[in-house]
Amino acid sequence: MLNTGLFLVLSAVLFCIGAVGVVTRRNAIVAFMSIEIMFNAANLAFLAFARQHVDMTGHAAAFFVMAVAAAEAAVGLAIIIAVFRRKATVNLDELRELRG
């Protein structure tokens, strides 16, 4: 078995790539996919620490993260569709108003 530090550093790198995507990309769907990358980086860290301590609680946590991410994807994409129908854009810079 490899040193778990390798997995942890990789998860930090992936998390940062996702964070850069959320901050710099203006397309709402791409920003959303970047958030998915960050979720998966967090899951990798959970699993690496679970392996290090030989404790499967991290697996349960990663499982729930996956379920919540699926629910979030469904609702978020529905919101994107609703916004696109009203404003005809998914550019985050052009969506400045909270009122509908």
Binding site: M1, L2, N3, T4, G5, L6, F7, L8, V9, S11, A12, V13, F15, C16, A45, A48, F49, R51, Q52, H53, V54
Partner: peptide
Amino acid sequence: MAVPMWKAGRVP
């Protein structure tokens, strides 16, 4: 993030 992560890891 990466530096403490690397230090936290060890061969399980």
